[in-house]
Every structure is written in structure tokens, then in C-alpha cells.
Design a protein around this nucleic acid. Sequence first.
DNA 1: CGATTGCTTGACCCCCATCAATCCTCGTGG
DNA 2: CCACGAGGATTGATGGGGGTCAAGCAATCG
Lengths: 228, 228
Amino acid sequence: MSKCEQCIVRKFNSLKELTKDELIRITACKSSKNIKKGDVIFKEGDHLNGIFCIKDGVCKVSKMSDNGRNQIINLIQKGNILGERSLISDQTSNLTAIALSDMSVCFIPKEEIIRDLENNPNFTLDLLKTMANSLKNADNLVVGMAQKSVKQRLADTLLLLQKKFSTNSKGAINIQLSREDIANIIGTATESAIRLLSELKKKKIIGFVGKDITILDDKELEKIAQGF
Amino acid sequence: MSKCEQCIVRKFNSLKELTKDELIRITACKSSKNIKKGDVIFKEGDHLNGIFCIKDGVCKVSKMSDNGRNQIINLIQKGNILGERSLISDQTSNLTAIALSDMSVCFIPKEEIIRDLENNPNFTLDLLKTMANSLKNADNLVVGMAQKSVKQRLADTLLLLQKKFSTNSKGAINIQLSREDIANIIGTATESAIRLLSELKKKKIIGFVGKDITILDDKELEKIAQGF
DNA sequence: CGATTGCTTGACCCCCATCAATCCTCGTGG
DNA sequence: CCACGAGGATTGATGGGGGTCAAGCAATCG
């Protein structure tokens, strides 16, 4: 089993604040998991007995609305931590996490994290900062959802995805999302998302082949995001 | 000046975790403020040099969208803390806070809070739990905004307001909101909110006189919130 | 090589944003 | 005490955005 104290991934999240001793203790009790594309990592109502540290891959975090439609709240990638919210507030998860690619993750049991939270102020404070940032993002998302048109939100989302996942060697945004996923991120019907994507392609603002999407005209996309 | 260690209000927020000594220190450096209805407490872009502990009154926390429209993100009342997010992530505020009633608040300087965050793990952990809860609420709000109709959101909001602010002696929801405020909470045009309120009144599901709104039929309102 | 799943486009129509006109309410000054 | 003005509340009319249903098309998989 790989050792946490030698793991590069932890440098990108709050686990970087743990001491060497704490990391050694966690190495002893963590478990590594390989998750296949499409697998459910946890779902709404599940009781999480720990957190996941993402070593590789991407997953979507979503929630079902009363209407029976799915809303993707967040995309989690390499270096991120997953499940800390439920753990901290000691509640069942109100979100569902599903792998968008094959993933490699470490599962750290709840008791270990709680112990570190109680004993290592640097760790807790870093987690607090991370969560404050998540909250800011969520607030901004609320405003966007409430006030922007679907077209604006699509533009926003494409720009954000490119920023977050960068581009591959061919210039395409480096994440594989179905049309339905895209629709569920911007909060609209799949057909609407498809229609708007086609429109953007026709205007040469983006290009796409299958799930590979390329932004051709950043400036124009930003204009659209701000409402022409 | 009133003393923090004798203040009842702090029992309702993370400040309850501070030790007696810490409270005495804060008493010495805090300042009390009386804020009038309509006053701006802070606005987007302001640098907050501390947090506010609400002793009495209510305020709205909102954000301007690119479209120039206002979205109310949260309502803060007696016992709550305001401004902790910006302080923790050490950024300018991306939200605006405006008093909805005359208010009485205490302002605690940033350095004092930071010191306590670094030295009192119970305080930090409690704040972390509070923020985890805020994040959960924000996530739910995102889903609601993205997936629910304006009518559903209005029903949701009315139920939530009653739950959060309770009712006065006449059975009306105990908060004074303009029609515009209500519209800005549910994320719609003022006229739309007014129209739907009228509709609900006609159906005897709610009643209102001026800004006093009374829920007459909880069950029916819940049905509407879930999409009939 | 069917068959299931995802993608795309068309048609329809309802919800809701917007503009406009009127009414109401309340604070202010004469 | 009343007149008056300003801002909020209400109702009507209108048009477009986007949700939904439906039907073809492409692609992926056993």
C-alpha cells in the first residue's frame, strides 16, 4: 500500500497540514480504491464513514430535485477531497457522487479525521478556508442560476470548465461530459443545451467532435456570459 | 459597554466556544453599533476588518449579478454572525449586507478572531460545522434555483420564512419584506412575485395585508413547493 | 449485427420577463 | 390638517425563452 507521507496528491488539499506522524497513522488505516467510470461513490442518504482523497480521475457531485431532475453541483478532480462536508456536520450525505472517468482514490476513516480535526488546528483552519471558498463559489452559483439565462450559464460553464480542467494536446477541454451532464451542470433540459451548443458551433465560437469541446473564441464567449 | 461574557446572544453562534478569558479580551476591543433600517452594513468589494455579531434585528445578504439584478442569498437575524466568510478566506466581500430593520450589532476586529481561530480548536471546529451547514444550504439553494419553477420557489420561500422567523401574535410571518425583496429571494421579477402572491391569496392559501403575510394552508403550500 | 443508449433537430406552447398604466401608502412641507 | 409627491403595489398586455414531446440519426456494446 502506498504511503500518505510520500503522496504528492495531498499537497493540493488540507491534508498537507498534517504532521508526519499523523500521516503515518493515516497510511495504516486508509484503504485504496479503484473506481470505474459510471460507478456510484456514494449517494444521497448514505452515511459516510470517512472522506475520499482523489488520487486520479474525475467525478460529478449532484443532487436530485423534488421534480426528479438531476443537478450537478460540483466536479471533483485529482487532488481534491470528497465527502468532508457530511463528515464535519455528522449527517448523511445530501449529494450523490458518480465517477466520470476511472478513478483512483484513498478512503480515510472518519475517526482518524475527527481526531486530527480536534488536535491539529492548522488542519482544521485549512479545511475552514477551503470550505469558505466552496461557500463563496456556491453563493456565486446561486446568483448565476437565479439571474442568468441558459445561454449565459452555458457560456460561463464552458469557460469555467476550460479554466478548471485545461485543454488537451488538441486544444479540447480536458474532461469528458455527456450532453446530459452539461445540461445538468447549467440546469436545463438536455435538448436545450444541445441546441445552444450547436448554435455556438455554427457561429464558430466553439467546435466539438463527440465529447471533445474546443473553445475557439474566448472573447465572444465571455461577452455571451455577460449577456451580449 | 455591554460585556460579551454576559451576552446571551453569543450562545447561538460559534462564539459560545470561546473561553471566559477570550471573551473578556473581546469585550475590551469590540464596538457596538446601532444600524438603521435600510443602512448598508458592507457591500461587495469592501474589505472587512472583522465580523459582526447580531444582537438584534434582521439584514439581507445579497449579490449583484452581471445582468444588474439583485439576488438575496441569505437573511441574517439575531444570534447569527455576519462576515466570517470573507474574514476567513481573507478576501474582500463578494456580498452586500443591508439592514431590513433597525439593528443592534457588535463589531469584533479581525485580529482578535484570527487569534482565537489559531488558539482555540473548539471555536474553529464549531465555525467549521456552521460553515458546513451553510454550504449544505447553499447547495440545496442551487438545486432549487436551477430546477424549480418560480411558483415552487415562492412556496418554498414562504415556508422557509415561517420556519426561520416564526409568526407574530396575529399569525403573520415575523419579518418585513418588500415585494421586491421577496422577488429577489426567489430570483424573479417583482411583478411575477406579486402576481403569484395574489394568486395564492385568491386561493386562500395565504393571506396578506401590506407586508404582513400569513400562511393559511401549509399542506397546500407544501404541495405547490413539490410541484403540485 | 440487432439493440440499446446517446445525440440532434423540429414543432408546440406555457411560463415568465418586460413595458406600461394605475392605484395605494406614507412621509413631508405648507 | 391637508395637499402633494415619490416610491411601492397591482394589474394588463405582449413576446420570447426554454421545457416538453416526438421522431429520426449516430454510436456503442454485447
